[in-house]
């Protein structure tokens, strides 16, 4: 998604140091793979968005920090960092969790899905498409977490009435107050997926 000239790539170019530091880190990663980790660090192999990744980490590193700081996947957001806001929601082995309360070291062998892995190439996931169509966000900060939570909510079959959706999405806060449109988007995505499943059976 990083267009030339956007804020993130500007910051990377501007700091420069980051670019310099990246190359030795790659070499280090190759070397690390063949040696046992030094005391206090752990090697964790996991799948992130279908790609096998290996992390050499301190056990204090949360999954959220590992995704954002080590794997350059900044879609999951750090809001409260205490499991209260849901901005960090990702799926681990298909279940929605708070990445900020998950220690990365506990994710050995697990499959992590973040917002970056949800679309199929240029085709958005039905929940992503529904969030666009229903204008289910304003500032967008909570949106990656909302979308992954909504994917799970539909999969859990808890996207029936508005009341049920509101309850099932209660782990995701939106400070802009886009809740009515989020509920609409969850319903739209639910119906789109149900329609697709029905078409598939015909």
């Amino acid at each position: 998604m990083a267009e030339p000239g956007d804020r993130r790539s500007f910051m990377k170019k501007a700091t420069g140091l980051l670019g310099l530091a990246a190359a030795p880190e790659l070499a280090l990663a190759a070397r690390e793979a063949q040696t046992a980790p030094p005391p206090g660090l752990h090697d964790v192999a996991l799948s992130v968005n279908g790609t096998k990744r290996t992390l050499r980490i301190d056990p204090r590193v949360t999954l959220l920090d590992a995704l954002r700081e080590r794997l350059d996947l900044t879609g999951a957001k750090k809001g409260c960092d205490h499991g209260a806001c849901g901005a960090c929601t990702v799926l681990v082995n298909g279940r929605r969790v708070n990445a900020c309360l998950t220690l990365a070291v506990t994710c050995r062998g697990k499959e992590v899905l973040t917002i970056e892995g949800l679309a199929q190439g240029d085709t958005l996931h039905p929940v992503q498409q529904a969030f666009l169509e229903d204008d289910a966000f304003q500032c967008g900060f909570c949106t990656p977490g909302q979308i992954l939570s909504a994917v799970a909510c539909i999969r859990e079959d808890r996207a029936g009435s508005d009341l049920e959706i509101r309850e099932a999405m209660s782990g995701n806060l939106c400070r802009c107050g886009a809740y009515p449109n989020i509920v609409a988007a969850v319903k739209r995505a639910r119906d789109a997926q149900a329609g697709r499943a029905q078409a598939g059976r015909k």
Binding site: G86, R96, N98, S149, S170, G171, N172
Partner: peptide, 9 residues
């Protein structure tokens, strides 16, 4: 209790 995310964990 809690939220769906926390109940999953």
């Amino acid at each position: 209790s809690a939220s769906p995310q926390i109940r999953n964990m």
